[in-house]
Simulated assay, not measured.
Amino acid sequence: MREDQAWPTVEGISTEVLLDETFDRDAITTLRHSVASCARAAGLTGDRLDDFVVAVNELLTNAVRHGGGLGRVQMWSAAGDVVCQVSDSGSGLAGARLEPAVRPPADQPGGWGLWLAEELTDSFELITGTDGTTVRVSSRSSLSQP
């Protein structure tokens, strides 16, 4: 999705809201546990659950660290996917993000969050601008797989 593009509006899709909270640095650990519980209840298990939680934790941390100290996390299940969206109100990403995402060098101490979130989930979308950054990730639930 292009950085200047708005999220598409979709009507008529049944969704179940699992989580919708604002957060700061002090809430990240509690939220990570809530994300794990909600994702498990929505059908993620095993490595898929662990990967999803790590990905969302990276997004939560990025929102606080780079996005002004506060964020909003929303999770829902729809059409067999567990979806999480993390938004902040920072000044946006400084430079264009390479597509496809390139793995950071092994000796680089930071800059791994977005790459990990994309690698560990089935879908990854990012919108960034002067009003903040929103990242949406999703993973297919084992409840919906044959």
Rank of each mutant, 00 (worst) to 15 (best):
G43K: 00
L44F: 07
T45S: 14
T45F: 14
D47A: 06
D47N: 06
R48S: 11
R48I: 08
L49H: 00
F52L: 09
F52V: 10
F52K: 06
V54W: 04
N57D: 15
L59H: 08
L59R: 03
L59V: 05
L60H: 01
T61H: 11
A63L: 03
R65Q: 12
R65L: 10
R65C: 02
H66T: 11
H66N: 13
H66L: 14
G67L: 07
G68R: 05
G68W: 04
L70N: 01
L70R: 12
G71M: 00
G71R: 11
G71V: 12
R72P: 01
V73I: 15
V73W: 08
Q74L: 11
M75R: 04
M75P: 13
W76G: 00
W76R: 11
S77T: 03
S77C: 08
A79I: 09
G80D: 02
G80C: 07
V82H: 09
C84W: 00
V86T: 12
V86H: 01
D88T: 06
D88M: 00
S89A: 13
S89Y: 02
G90V: 03
G92H: 09
L93R: 14
A94K: 14
G95P: 04
G95Y: 10
A96W: 09
E99I: 11
E99C: 09
P100Y: 12
P104F: 05
P105V: 05
P105I: 01
A106T: 08
D107G: 02
Q108F: 01
P109C: 04
G110S: 14
W112M: 10
L114K: 07
L114E: 06
W115Q: 07
A117E: 07
A117G: 01
E119M: 13
T121I: 04
S123Q: 15
S123Y: 08
F124C: 05
L126Q: 00
L126R: 10
I127G: 12
G129L: 05
T130I: 10
V135P: 03
V135K: 01
